[in-house]
Computed example of a mutant assay.
Amino acid sequence: MHYRKLGKTGFNVSEISLGTWQVGGKWGDPFSHETADSILNKAVDSGINFIDTADVYGDGESEKAVGRLVRSRSERVYVATKCGRQLQPHVNEAYQPEAIRKFVEASLRNMQLETLDLIQLHCPPTEVYYRPEIFEVFDRLKDEGKILNLGVSVEKVEEGLKALTFSNVTTIQLIFNMFRQRPTELLFREAKRHDVGLIVRVPLASGLLTGKFSPQTTFSPDDHRQFNRDGAAFDKGETFAGVDYETGLAAVEELKKVFPDQPNLAPIALRWVLMFDEVSCVIPGASKPSQLESNLNAAELPALSGEQMDAVRSIYEQRIKPLVHNLW
């Protein structure tokens, strides 16, 4: 495993880390602590030392599993969680300093930890990024020893750029993959200039970039890849990176021609993300240990060639960019 600096947190984190949205089962299935424990422990055994969760994953069960892992291991495991999505309705006006404080304290109870290594605003409405009082409450929480660092999880490049104006923001979590390349134009450069770490989520475009899906692939009714394709439940950019399913399948077929010897494109897609030095870590999820093993393979792949990088860029420019580039 290779490690990179996570911005001004000073943490050296595994470049392949773990996101826990679907830990414990495939999206839509009941949360399984047995499966979660298996995946989490295998991750640490493999050198992963950064785990991202959220209070809404499994209605707090993911946080409980992550906390149990950290308390049971001797290795230093950095924990990042997120808050805000429990607000109902999830609107700008609902974001208040006291509500944020309660969410942080609830996460500490869920994980039975005294301090959170990183707390992130969980894709709040864009207006929240223009409210200094929301960012100031995290300074108070840090003074009290409840958090070490503040980060933001964003939907849009605009939100990431605005977050950089707050000096206490240490990380930005964003969607970045072969189908979502806009962040390289400005956000990457500005994050590096501010020494803010970049945490990449949805690196496989909800599985599209594994190359294993087809027009016949079906998803359960409770799987966001079925019910959220048009953004019915949350930002549609979180599902297949906002790319129309059929369009994505066609683009994947083109990618397979660029990497003809790869039966599974997932490690290639992750290695592509890691080609960008501004990225601190990538946090693919796993609903079973075998998926974790596939993700870990990316860390040992050789760098992609200039020709391969150009080919991926060309596929994006021709098939994807006109449809999604300016949306996020």
Rank of each mutant, 00 (worst) to 15 (best):
V282L: 05
P263Q: 12
V258S: 04
N264Q: 09
G285Q: 09
C281E: 03
V279M: 03
P267I: 11
K257T: 15
W272P: 08
S287P: 04
R271A: 10
V282R: 01
A286L: 06
A286E: 11
P267K: 12
W272G: 10
K257R: 14
P263G: 03
L274T: 09
V279S: 06
F259G: 13
P260M: 07
L270I: 15
A266I: 04
L270E: 05
K257N: 11
S287H: 14
V273W: 00
A266Y: 05
V282Y: 02
V273A: 09
I283L: 00
D277R: 05
I268M: 10
L265H: 09
S280H: 01
C281H: 01
V258Y: 02
K256R: 15
P284S: 09
D261L: 04
E278Y: 01
R271H: 06
E278I: 03
L274H: 02
N264A: 05
L265E: 12
M275N: 14
R271P: 06
D261E: 15
V279D: 03
V273D: 00
L265C: 08
N264Y: 01
A266W: 00
P263R: 10
A266P: 09
G285A: 12
P260L: 03
V282N: 03
R271S: 05
V258F: 02
I268R: 10
L270P: 11
P267G: 12
M275F: 00
A286K: 13
G285H: 02
P267M: 08
K257C: 07
D277H: 08
G285N: 13
S287N: 13
Q262D: 13
E278D: 14
P263E: 11
S280D: 08
L270Y: 00
L265S: 12
V279C: 08
D261T: 15
R271K: 15
W272S: 12
K256S: 09
N264V: 10
P263L: 00
I268V: 15
I283S: 03
W272K: 13
R271F: 00
C281Q: 04
L274F: 05
L270D: 07
